[in-house]
Amino acid sequence: MLTTRRVDAYHALTVVAPGIAERFRPGHFITVAVGGPASSTLARRAFSVHDVKPDYGGTVEFVFTVRGPGTAWLAERKARDTLDMVGPLGRPFPLPRDPVHCVLVGAEYGSAPLFGLADLLQRRGCRVDFVLGAASADRVFGALRARRMGETTTLTTEDGSLGVRGRVTDVLPSVIADTRADVVYACGPLSTLRGVAAVAIEFDIPIQVAVEQTMVCGFGVCGSCVLPVIGEDGVTRMVRACVDGPVFRGERVRFEDIGTIPFDALGAPGAPGGRAHEPGGQTGNRHVS
């Protein structure tokens, strides 16, 4: 680990990790083990990659807020401590083939992965506009950088301490209209993404969302991070955010059904294909573990 710094309400850790830096694409995330080798907290913690630099063979930076014991432990790390980090994980943001207009929406630390994306989009000749928001000014991450990079940057805070009072979804319609946006990219809490996706669908433009769903392994083996997503074939499946995402097409995510198994999901209790072939066919849908 190289450096630790505070950025307003957030902590940023930079780690020397050439193998991760080399393969990184915007939208990828990393996981870290927390609490040291004999830790009693076994779930890995997931973080979006904020920045990747070529220094020291390749460094990776992520930004976080202290939520519980894992992030509290991370916040106490010092330069030169070592960190158990796995990545890059997940599917990155897909990029448009043509030089289109893109609005990048970030809520809270959700803006962290958007700057690498903006850089790539601009190198492809895309126009990039930012909408960043949070509860208060100190929780809006990367406003300065957005102002430097974006064609326009619109900031929102719920307490009105910076930019427009309100939420990103309040200003998004006018930003889409003004910039004649062709596509929206968004990252932030699920409730925000749901609202952002609804706006983009209203404008009938593609929306890519990077979701945050409770993860344990981060590489597809534990099954904790599933959410209902509609596939190409129109069938809803419980897919894993860590390997099938975290980036999804916004209109495919059934935000209102997260935390449930929609009755029409593949393999849902009582759904077509979810019933045993047994004569008299009752299913055992109450299996334990």
């Binding site: 534990c222 599933v226 593949l266 979810g274 045993a276 072939h277 299996h287």
Partner: peptide, 29 residues
């Protein structure tokens, strides 16, 4: 025998030196 969607989320919770899981045998059948 048949595909299973498993249980709703949250499915896994961290407990001291352990995990509690109710993944519900999600699988392809």
């Amino acid at each position: 025998l048949t595909p299973r969607s498993g249980r709703p989320t949250p499915r896994i919770a961290e407990t001291p030196s352990g995990l509690l899981n109710a993944v519900g045998l999600q699988g392809p059948g």
